[in-house]
Amino acid sequence: MKGRLLISAAVVSLGMAGMAWSQGNSATAEIEKYREMLGDGNPAELFEMDGEALWATARGPKNASLQKCDLGLGAGVVKGAYAQMPRYFADSDKVEDLESRLMTCMVKLQGFDRAELSKKPFGTANYKSDMEALVAYVVGQSRGMPMAVPTAHPKEKAAFELGKQIFFYRAGPYDFSCATCHAMTDARIRMQDLPDLTSPAGSQRAYTSWPAYRVSQSLFRSFQWRLNDCFRQQRFPEPTYASESTIALTSYLATMANGATYQGPGIKR
């Protein structure tokens, strides 16, 4: 019997191997190969599993789970919710992105303190972020769904407009805005491709691949983390977690991606 089980095994190591680069084009091709290899399996699934368990666990001063949390499609509906966020929520009278909304639920249902929740939202090698696990679970439930961020409510329109203004806002020691790097096609910084977030195609491709597992950090990263690290590199001061500005910018980017199929959670170098 054993003899009949023919085995071919391929062990995929996610470590970046030293690459022999003779010229720019072959380097780009090698990076493309590396990306394909990453597509074989995504450790983000581990974080999704943790988040799914966390969602159903009774926690906080009120000892309740998040199973009654309304992410926009009704209490407890997770499937497809992320593909329609950020959106206006009548109960908070605000436009909220996923992370803001999760905090709203954790405050309302579980009795957590919002300021406390905002203190350490991003994981490190020695600190596991509950928020990022929850994000992994929720976004995973929108994989394969069309992006359909609502834009009808006046506050959704206002968020989109504010987000656009922030996208083009130049400041800091280097005069950078988001647009400095993300408003031209086929550009790259060093070897890193820069999506054109002002075009539907570029914006759709980029937005639908976040949140993502970062191989170089061995961590799952939320969209608020993505914006936070962009602003760091932009030489800006730090955006407050889930602040109106970051939600507005997310509204702008998410709305620009409308119509595309959500592909996340992604996997990045």
Binding site: L162, Q165, I166, Y169, F231, F236, P237, E238, P239, T240, S243, E244, S245, T246, A248
Partner: peptide, 13 residues
């Protein structure tokens, strides 16, 4: 308006 919003939502680090 956008500058005022940003100054509310960002902090020194």
């Amino acid at each position: 308006v956008v500058a005022a919003r940003l100054k509310t939502d960002f902090h020194t680090k």
